[in-house]
Design a protein around this nucleic acid. Structure first.
Lengths: 96, 96
DNA sequence: AATACACTTCGACATATGTCGAATTGTAAA
DNA sequence: TTTACAATTCGACATATGTCGAAGTGTATT
């Protein structure tokens, strides 16, 4: 993990809404893709953060682009799950 | 540590140059303020990152504003030291 | 005091970012 | 097949950001 890559990942987490989205996805993760009742499909995030669907879509794309999550369509919904190894790599180059 | 505060700290580390500056400061820290021979005064950073003095000054201010470092003038030089507890707080709310 | 060096402040600039509304695509239910 | 719902794409916009050059401040050396 080089510094530029780490900075990119940190940047993906550097906006309050995006950080909250990521933490929700991590918290909601049960080891696999979740069902439609999960708290991390776009419409749920939209409601809880009070931002529009296009914005949520954009944020999820940024998190995915940084390698912090993966997404998968399940019927009408989009389900996200964390890729914990990505954050782990960043931790390694920072203190402790 | 709430999410907004954590996001602010992550943002301070989300630019490659600023992340590199922070890591240099952490690496160079010997438990106290360093002497003029340290690698983290503005002119050293300037040379190693190939960015101008005003930009380095700006980046250091952002790191200090996020609480990630403190700075102190020693003669002609500005010396920086890390505030490790700040990063520690952010670690706590992220995975692992 | 005069000079030189280290850093900061200010103003400007190009670029990036977060957000939205409108229109579009994909999927399920009636 | 029509309708309804979930999400995406597109275009636009205001704001934030990283960088620089020029000018200013503070400190040490001569």
């Amino acid at each position: 993990m080089d510094i530029k890559q780490a900075a990119k990942i940190l940047k993906a987490l550097s906006h309050p809404n995006r950080l909250e989205i990521y933490l929700s996805i991590v918290k909601g993760d049960q080891g696999g893709f979740q069902t439609a009742e999960c708290e991390c499909c776009v419409s749920e995030i939209m409601a809880s953060l009070k931002i529009g669907a296009p914005t949520v879509s954009h944020h999820l794309k940024e998190l995915a682009n940084a390698g912090l999550i993966t997404t998968e369509r399940q019927g009408k919904f989009l389900i996200a799950k964390p890729v914990l190894g990505t954050w782990e790599e960043v931790r390694k180059i920072l203190p402790q």
